[in-house]
Computed example of a mutant assay.
Amino acid sequence: MNGPTAATLTVGYYTAGDLPAIEPVLIDVYAEVYATEAAADPFFSVAKFTERLHAHARQPRWGCALGEVCGIPVGYAYGFARTAEYRWNGLLTPVPAADLEETDTRTFALCEVMVQAQWRGTGIARTLHEELLSHRIEERSHLLVEEDHPKVRALYERWGYQYMGTMQPYPDSPRYNSMIRTIP
Rank of each mutant, 00 (worst) to 15 (best):
N2Y: 12
P4H: 11
P4S: 13
A6L: 12
A6Y: 11
A7Q: 14
L9S: 01
L9T: 03
T10W: 03
V11E: 03
G12Y: 11
Y14K: 07
T15M: 11
G17Q: 09
D18N: 14
L19S: 10
P20D: 08
P20K: 07
A21C: 02
I22M: 10
I22N: 01
I22E: 08
L26Y: 04
L26H: 03
I27P: 05
I27Q: 09
D28W: 01
Y30L: 09
Y30R: 00
Y30M: 06
A31N: 01
E32S: 14
V33P: 09
V33Y: 04
E37R: 12
A39Y: 02
D41V: 05
D41F: 08
P42E: 12
F44Q: 10
A47V: 14
F49R: 06
T50L: 13
L53E: 05
H54M: 06
H54W: 06
H54Q: 15
H56K: 04
H56Y: 02
R58L: 08
R58F: 06
P60W: 09
C64V: 02
G67S: 06
V69Y: 05
Y76G: 01
A77Y: 08
F80S: 08
A81I: 00
A81D: 04
A84W: 09
Y86Q: 03
R87A: 05
W88F: 13
G90L: 02
P94N: 08
A98E: 12
L100A: 05
E102D: 12
F108K: 11
A109T: 00
C111S: 08
E112Y: 03
A117P: 06
A117E: 12
W119R: 05
T122W: 07
G123F: 08
I124Q: 02
L128Y: 09
H129F: 15
E130T: 11
S141V: 15
L144W: 03
L144T: 00
L144M: 10
E146W: 15
D148K: 14
V152I: 14
A154N: 04
A154L: 13
A154Y: 04
Y156S: 03
Y156I: 07
G160V: 02
M167Y: 06
Q168F: 09
P169G: 13
P169K: 14
D172P: 01
P174W: 13
P174I: 07
Y176F: 15
M179E: 00
M179I: 00
M179Y: 00
M179Q: 02
R181G: 01
R181I: 00
T182R: 15
T182W: 11
